[in-house]
Amino acid sequence: MKRAILTLALLATGNVVAQPIYCSGKISSVYIQSDGNVNINGTWRNSWTSICNTKGSDPITCSLWASYAASAVQNNLKVTVSYNLPAGSSCASLETYGNAPKPTYFMIHNPSM
């Protein structure tokens, strides 16, 4: 009986397939909250999404991403933020603020290339 329940549980969760989603565009603004959340307003969402937390489990990466975001705003550069999300997800449907998923990477594009 326990084995059947475990098998059903695995089958039910096995149907959710994560795929990479690449959100590209410019960032109009970036801010950091007192709780450490780094929030960006990207053209792909036109709303605020949290990309990381400077007080979270990886403060070094988050601090670097915050500086990348600030540089992208200051220099009007295009960025790409990648996420692993369930099939059918889109950049326009990302959750907002702290409910946003954690990105897998943050890239700044070279404007001369």
Rank of each mutant, 00 (worst) to 15 (best):
S67H: 13
P20S: 03
L77I: 04
T13M: 10
W44I: 07
N110V: 05
Q74T: 13
G56N: 03
P103Q: 05
A12C: 05
C91S: 12
L94E: 00
I27C: 08
G98I: 14
I32E: 06
I27D: 13
A70M: 14
Q19R: 13
P59F: 01
L64I: 12
Y97M: 03
A72Y: 07
T43F: 12
I51Y: 02
A66F: 13
V38W: 05
N41F: 06
M1S: 14
A12L: 05
I5S: 02
P111L: 02
P59A: 07
V73W: 04
P103N: 07
D35S: 04
T61W: 15
S71N: 11
A92W: 14
S93R: 12
L11E: 00
P111I: 03
G98M: 11
L11F: 11
N75L: 15
Y83F: 10
P101K: 06
S24T: 10
L64W: 12
C91L: 02
A72G: 00
A70N: 12
L6P: 00
L94S: 03
I40L: 07
A9S: 07
S29V: 09
I27V: 06
P103G: 06
G88V: 03
Y31V: 00
S71I: 07
S34V: 03
A87M: 14
W48Y: 12
T80G: 08
N46F: 00
I108D: 02
Y97C: 00
C91K: 02
L94V: 11
V73N: 05
N53Q: 03
L77A: 01
I51S: 07
G56L: 05
A12H: 11
S34W: 05
I21N: 03
A92S: 10
S71Y: 10
Y22P: 00
R45N: 01
N76G: 05
A100V: 07
W48R: 08
M113W: 12
S34Q: 06
A9G: 08
G25D: 01
N99K: 14
T7C: 05
S29C: 08
V38E: 05
K55F: 11
S47K: 00
S93N: 14
S89P: 06
A100E: 01
G42C: 06
N99W: 09
N39W: 12
S24Q: 15
S71P: 06
T54M: 04
K78T: 14
